[in-house]
Design a protein around this nucleic acid. Structure first.
Length: 342
DNA sequence: AATCATCACAACCGCATTCTC
DNA sequence: AGAGAATGCGGTTGTGATGAT
């Protein structure tokens, strides 16, 4: 389906392109709007024979009166031979919904998990179809008292030594990306995730993460380690194990985050109390940055050792705010029919 | 048949980040 | 180091197709 009329930007372009004579086209006027079959053919032929390179060069050398950006978009979203096209399968739909529940509108990251699909395609599908469908579904179930969007999660304020509740949405936003979050509460905005303590009260929203096991939970401010599921609870909610003891096996592998990304523990006063399953999905660097920088013993450890992800290339870094999908997807037996592409 | 509303999606825009010189 | 170019990303727009009235 083609929508935009070609060359909306200038009437000059329109006339010139109708003549289909590249030599006559003004050097400064680039064509916009719909791509003609001829343009597509030029771009495809060029890409197949010459391969990818600088997009502005491609546009020029392929004889296209388009900016490089436009060529890139056309190729990535429409002309690429590995595009799947066609309707989304139910499995794809479900995966998009799940990924979106974790990632939000990070379309490119979602698309990276759907072979043959583009971020634009997924974004359009979400905005035009899935969002409405989910909204309808939510309306049907919104009367339920167990509506997860209203679920309160206790967060421990270390400065004031008290527990305060926040809603799940705020916590998820906080967890997703503390550099660009737009949480509704200023107190939450000021929080930084630097340690996790388990809490049985939070029945995590990420069911797909629930089969990740065998991790220690996190660290407290003084370098102690908080653990769960290994029978070391010291009271009703959590237990503390001396990090020295727990980390003894890991101290030979040393991997430190860049200095500038480390977070001063003094600046952080809030520790969320959340289920360890949620914590597992956090950005690995996030833990490097925030959890493990305060204890020498822990600094000597790789996070992969803790979480068993180990799927990153050497030296690979995730940006702040990204999630560790490599590790996450390893554990996603939830969608057995999909061929995940990394 | 005509009109209007909605859907679907290609493509654009602006901004942020990364790269290159 | 920094300025400009290139690239990538997410939000938004515009319009043909389709359905409802």
């Amino acid at each position: 389906m083609q929508m935009r009329k070609p060359d909306l930007i200038t009437g000059i372009n329109n006339k010139m392109n109708n003549n289909n004579n590249n030599n006559n086209i003004s050097k400064n006027k680039l064509r916009k709007g719909l791509w003609s079959p001829e343009e597509d053919e030029k771009l495809v032929r060029y890409m197949i024979t010459k391969g990818q390179g600088c997009w502005s060069d491609i546009a020029r050398n392929a004889g296209l009166q388009r900016c490089g950006k436009s060529c890139r978009l056309r190729w990535i979203n429409y002309l690429r031979p590995d595009l799947k096209r066609g309707a989304f399968s139910p499995q794809e739909e479900e995966l998009i919904i799940h990924l979106h529940s974790i990632l939000g509108n990070r379309w490119s990251q979602i698309a990276a998990r759907l072979p043959g699909r583009t971020d634009n395609e997924i974004k359009n599908f979400w905005n035009s179809t899935l969002k409405k469908r989910l909204k309808t579904n939510n309306n049907n179930t919104s009367q339920s008292p167990s509506d997860s969007s209203d679920q309160q999660i206790d967060v421990f304020d270390m400065k004031n030594n008290m527990i305060m509740p926040i809603n799940e949405q705020d916590l998820m936003t906080l967890c997703m990306d503390n550099s660009s979050s737009s949480t509704s509460s200023s107190s939450i905005q000021s929080m930084q995730m630097h340690a996790m303590v388990l809490s049985d009260q939070f029945d995590h929203p990420f069911s797909l993460l629930s089969n990740i096991n065998n991790i220690p939970t996190c660290l407290t401010q003084d370098g102690n380690m908080v653990v769960d599921d290994i029978g070391l609870h010291s009271d009703d909610h959590y237990g503390i194990l001396e990090a020295n003891n727990k980390m003894g096996l890991l101290e030979n592998d040393f991997e430190l985050p860049p200095l500038e990304s480390r977070i001063s523990m003094e600046d952080k006063s809030m520790i969320p109390l959340i289920n360890h399953n949620v914590m597992k999905s956090y950005n690995i660097n996030h833990f490097n940055n925030s959890c493990f920088n305060n204890t020498n013993q822990i600094q000597n450890s790789k996070v992969e050792d803790f979480f068993g992800f180990g799927n990153h290339g050497q030296g690979e870094n995730l940006r702040m705010g990204e999630w560790d999908f490599e590790g996450l997807m390893q554990d996603m037996s939830y969608f057995p029919t999909l061929d995940f592409q990394v």
